[in-house]
């Protein structure tokens, strides 16, 4: 773990608490949670339902804010940002991959990949070129004009991964990214994550499947909004 301390911390949570009011009860989804993810790491985040992993994912993805505590992305404090600044941060620094792909049905493959850039204040001039390259990178270079409905689940998830990479984000957040896929396609997607990891991307994979979780470099296991255990998955690192 020594070299981890040296690496740049892309996502750093300090004593993050997130509580919800459920009627008169207060539910602490995250409780004084402190952890940091370094650049280029590949983590899986696991835990039973109610362990707080979805809340952690929402906070990491900047679509939710901590009730208290500090969260920094690439050194920038998130908890004090207003809605617009938070949106900006998402369009620049976050890449989302969802369980149900969540492509926009009206848009074709290329347009779907371009969506995050569309919302940037100052989009890069080479956006289309970049999106085309990413589509080729995930093996869909010949289907740029297709609509999501015309693609298989695995292909849709590849488009979603390309979309998550188009803004060159600090972290790629994958929420049960293989949950809707058959096992063969799921393995292909996991292979793709391995490749991206090898290219130096920071990937956080939320899952409840042990086999999937073990593909990551390391696993962070949550329980009751706190860290349960941290595992090194030797098997997850390809030789």
């Amino acid at each position: 773990m020594a070299e981890r301390a040296q690496a740049e911390k892309v996502a750093e949570l300090t004593r993050v608490t997130r509580h919800y009011k459920m009627g008169t009860n207060v539910v602490r989804a995250l409780d004084e949670f402190s952890f940091s993810f370094a650049k280029g790491e590949y983590w899986s985040i696991m835990g039973s339902s109610g362990s707080g992993k979805s809340t952690l994912l929402n906070i990491l993805g900047c679509i939710d804010r901590p009730s208290s505590g500090s969260y920094r992305v690439r050194g920038q404090e998130v908890s004090t940002l207003d809605d617009d600044e938070l949106s900006n941060l998402r369009s620049r620094d976050i890449g989302f991959v969802f369980q149900s792909y969540n492509l926009i049905p009206q848009l074709n493959v290329l347009e779907n990949i371009l969506v995050p850039l569309f919302y940037q204040d100052d989009p890069p001039p080479d956006g289309e070129e970049r999106a085309t390259k990413l589509a080729e990178r995930v093996g869909l270079g010949s289907r740029l004009e297709h609509r999501p409905m015309e693609l298989s689940g695995g292909q849709q998830q590849r488009v979603a991964i390309a979309r998550a990479l188009v803004n060159d984000p600090a972290i790629v957040l994958a929420d049960e990214a293989t949950g809707n896929l058959d096992s063969k396609t799921a393995l292909e997607i996991l292979d793709l994550f391995d490749e991206l990891h090898a290219e130096g991307k920071t990937i956080l994979l939320v899952t409840h499947e042990r086999t999937v979780g073990q593909r990551a470099e390391r696993t962070l296991r949550l329980r009751d909004g706190k860290i349960d255990e941290v595992l090194e998955n030797r098997t997850g690192v390809k030789a």
Partner: peptide
């Protein structure tokens, strides 16, 4: 769709 767009960085005004 609104949720997806917001997650991908759309501001309220978008």
């Amino acid at each position: 769709e609104i949720g997806i767009r917001r997650a991908l960085g759309a501001k309220k005004r978008h």
